[in-house]
Computed example of a mutant assay.
Amino acid sequence: MAWRTARSRGTSERTWPSAFWTLAAIVVPPISLLAKIRIVDGHKLPREGPFVLAVNHYSELDAVMVAVAVWRLRRLPRFLAKESLFHVPVLGWALRATGMVPVGRTGSSADAQHTLDVSQALVEHGRGVIVYPEGTLTRDPDLWPMRGKTGAVRLALAGDIPLIPVAQWGAQEIMPRYGKIALWPLRRPVTVVFGDPIDLAGFHSDGKPAPATLSRATTVVMDRIAEMLSTLRGIPAPAQRWNPAEHGQKETGRLDP
Rank of each mutant, 00 (worst) to 15 (best):
T5W: 15
V220K: 02
R187H: 13
R78A: 02
D199Q: 03
A212K: 12
E124D: 13
Q172Y: 13
P17M: 12
M1Q: 14
K36R: 13
I198N: 09
G10H: 05
P176L: 02
P209D: 06
V90P: 10
H204S: 04
T138M: 07
H114G: 12
Q120S: 10
A6L: 14
V52D: 11
R38S: 07
V131L: 14
T138G: 03
S59F: 04
S119Y: 08
M228V: 04
W242T: 00
Q172R: 09
D256T: 14
A152T: 14
V28I: 10
V55F: 01
T11C: 13
Y178S: 00
G195K: 06
P46Q: 01
F79H: 11
V52S: 04
H204F: 06
N243I: 10
V55D: 00
P30T: 10
A182Y: 09
G49T: 00
G253T: 01
D41W: 02
L23A: 12
H247T: 01
K44Q: 13
I235K: 09
V52A: 04
G148D: 12
S32L: 09
D117Y: 13
P209W: 05
S109W: 13
P17N: 09
K208S: 15
Y58V: 08
R47Y: 09
A156Q: 08
V70P: 09
L155C: 03
L200Q: 06
T115I: 15
Q172K: 03
T136V: 00
P30A: 06
V129F: 03
H204Y: 02
G135V: 04
M1T: 14
I198Y: 05
